[in-house]
Amino acid sequence: MIRVAAVGDIHLAPGAEGTLRPAFETLGDHADLLLLAGDLTRHGTPQEAAVVAGEVAGLPVPVVAVLGNHDHHADRPQEVTAVLAAAGVTVLEGQAVVLDLDGTTVGVAGAKGFGGGYAGRCGSDFGEPEMKAFMRHSRTCADGLRRALGDLAQAGTGLRIALTHYSPVPDTLAGEPPEIHPFLGSYLLAEAIDEVGADLAVHGHAHLGTEHGITAGGVRVRNVAMPVIDRAYAVYHLTPRPRPEEPPP
């Protein structure tokens, strides 16, 4: 059994040092790894990233993260990534990491994701350049997640987890105004997850949403935005299961 801790939308900035560290110090008692589902900072500056790094450096479990829209606001995502990486955080964007946790291989595929909306109520790659760019970015992020999940399928990890900031399903947006759902996620992420398969999908971004959802293909989805879980992190227990034969790559 693997214990997965996860939280998103911690929105740290100078002045918030030590807010989460006391709770994170208890991670060794509760979890085998920590996932950070984006929006780790307020504006995406290296100074804010340094506060995040101080909260997670030297923890007794591996830390895997994706960035969120706030982490891109200052147009310095590479610097934010570098600050987090220097503190030992694995930051994913269209990539996967395989962890060996007490003999069980756990794969995490990560991508920020983007908006666009959900099947039947989504934007189209059509019209003005700005609209086409919006939808293409959504598809690029989902393609990155699909590739990363595919890498894990090929590696044959015992568990496969999809980590995003934006939501793959509308279920976990319940509580948010339906009018803004196209800014909170995209069905393209769920389609990628269902195409390859996963044991769990974790996201943040929707502060007023709900924790529990599921993709059309039956993958459990959890919204771990800190305002939703109302604690420093949520913990999910997963057990590796025998998989049906993987589709050919």
Binding site: T19, T26, H30, D230, A232, H237
Partner: peptide, 14 residues
């Protein structure tokens, strides 16, 4: 104000 306490429960997804 959101709580920053450690979790008091976990979810079993087996």
């Amino acid at each position: 104000v959101v709580s920053a306490r450690p979790p008091d429960r976990e979810e079993d997804l087996r």
